[in-house]
Design a protein around this nucleic acid. Sequence first.
DNA 1: CGCAATTCTTTACGCGCGTAAATTTTTTGT
DNA 2: ACAAAAAATTTACGCGCGTAAAGAATTGCG
Lengths: 341, 341
Amino acid sequence: MSETTIKNMEEFSAISGISRPTVSKYFHDPDSVRRSTRERIERALEKYDYRPNIFAMNQNRKLTKNVGIVVPLLSDPYFAEIARNLEQRCIDAGYRPTLFSAHGDPNLEIEVLDNLRALKPAGVLLAPLGRASHRDALEKFCDDVPTLIFDSSVDQLGLAFVGSDNFQFTSHISDYLCRTGEPPCFFEMKTPANPNAHRRRQSYLNAMEAFGHDPQVISIEGEGWAFEEIGRIGGHEAFASKQFSTNTILCSNDRLAIGLLTACYERGIKVGRGPNCTIRVAGQDGHPHSRYTCPPLTTISHDYDAVSKHAADSLLAAIEGHVEPWKSTRLEGKLILRDSA
Amino acid sequence: MSETTIKNMEEFSAISGISRPTVSKYFHDPDSVRRSTRERIERALEKYDYRPNIFAMNQNRKLTKNVGIVVPLLSDPYFAEIARNLEQRCIDAGYRPTLFSAHGDPNLEIEVLDNLRALKPAGVLLAPLGRASHRDALEKFCDDVPTLIFDSSVDQLGLAFVGSDNFQFTSHISDYLCRTGEPPCFFEMKTPANPNAHRRRQSYLNAMEAFGHDPQVISIEGEGWAFEEIGRIGGHEAFASKQFSTNTILCSNDRLAIGLLTACYERGIKVGRGPNCTIRVAGQDGHPHSRYTCPPLTTISHDYDAVSKHAADSLLAAIEGHVEPWKSTRLEGKLILRDSA
DNA sequence: CGCAATTCTTTACGCGCGTAAATTTTTTGT
DNA sequence: ACAAAAAATTTACGCGCGTAAAGAATTGCG
């Protein structure tokens, strides 16, 4: 690398011997110029490290290379993990992802989207808060910006939806639980933040009917996103009032299950499949932490890779002009057998 | 809000009746214009929602209002939580924070910093990866961009350092453990990613000497950021080779402790203070998850609020011209007594 | 080799805003 | 009420790059 520092595209075009408009074209898409000129530019690029001013670029381009990634709660490792995955895929495709979290607050979600608008993103990958989201504001945003919805669907919003097949999740794990012991009760929040919860409850009811068992749904109180605490408190109350009719509890999601396991511990209830265990607990999501609960949590896991790949691919395809009608893609989960059930 | 849509500051200045340079001044700092004109602008702002083009602003301003927040691993809820905190403080102070994660990879850390440079940030809040960080690249970055280091210090890098007092952490919890039972062994990674680990080990050694006990450090193998798994595997090996000389284990951090708890469970070892418990385990960090382990983890917690407040305040003060010599601030932690020890 | 199709160069303008200088208007203090 | 200070306006230029149009150079192909 030489010492002469290049401060703009004009100077760079001079020393590279290529005209500025062509250099500009190169930065927009390296393959849009002749092979030989591309090589000349890249040789110069190695000698003098120059990068076009990102603000000047974005100001004039009709379409930027910015991509927004919005999740409901970044402090939930599930979302952090999927966000990381999406981020990498965008970078690999030559886009500039920016990560946002609504921190569980629907007003913040709107604010985030407003800020995102200012970045003139080519597209957005959005996991909505769900029930609490301001529906019409989301809709308005999706009208303006190519948006792919993931994780939790809101009608036919955006370009498409990619997520997990919650019916398959619950029916699969219910099936497992029924075949290996007492039929499960279903442990959930009464007013879940996420619409997936409703699908899971329904799928549980279907599964129980198919097996000819009486379903039992325990719907606990609690607002917000502190699911572990909600599960813990709700668990204590459910135990105290003897609401569990069988020795098996299927939780609507892993974080609730983690809280329930804590409640079990605090009440001296042994969880697992072992000889002196009195109860089985299973979750749903394949939460990064579920491996390390005590006992390790039996759960059904999202296919993180497949979901994020499908989501990123769909968005980027749409950005690049491949129009397709709205579509919902729901991927199957994998049962992860561990000690808790 | 009226229907006429304003597309630039020129138009907005026309309808608000204020000249464009004054409007520009207002957006730079609302308090820099006379109260009456400020009110006129804000009245117009309510009628026609106009926001200055962020790219055009940043292109010309010598100093942007961008602030970068960089953490080693966003999927660790500890960092997610502190990042959220920092983010909010920046927004409240009128800055535009952008969140980045190095995803545990020192090369990515450099890449993130390079991308950050392109945003011409007014300042950066950086929690370095630690041992694995490319020291000289960080240094170079800090030379160019006002950077405040937090969580894990690297010499006298940047404007200042803000973090926790690891000596106090370990001495405090060691003290507690010694007074309430057998003196603790110290469970750590042999090659920890984070330099805080060294301080904690040293503090443990000091504490044990002060109490007149023989220290015992168990240093386990493992690279990377999958601390829980490292703790679990390392725990199994340590138990198998009977490396724990007392019934009390102080872990270098909570995530390691969480893995160790899983190992204990898997070996049928009862952890806690109860009558038929054979071992006590404590962690350090006050990890968001530590409340929900089984048993709930006794730990010493970072003062999240104080650390992030101090970090954000220091950076913003420096940005706004309050020069101060390099300083290291280390805040005390709070002991959180739970069932595990 | 010659022609058309590509690709590049030259020239020129515009994006939306920051900012400086000179001038005019408004406010402040007495 | 008046001068001085403060704030706003007018005018003008520049930032770094996108992009369009017209012409020149290069390429591919029969």
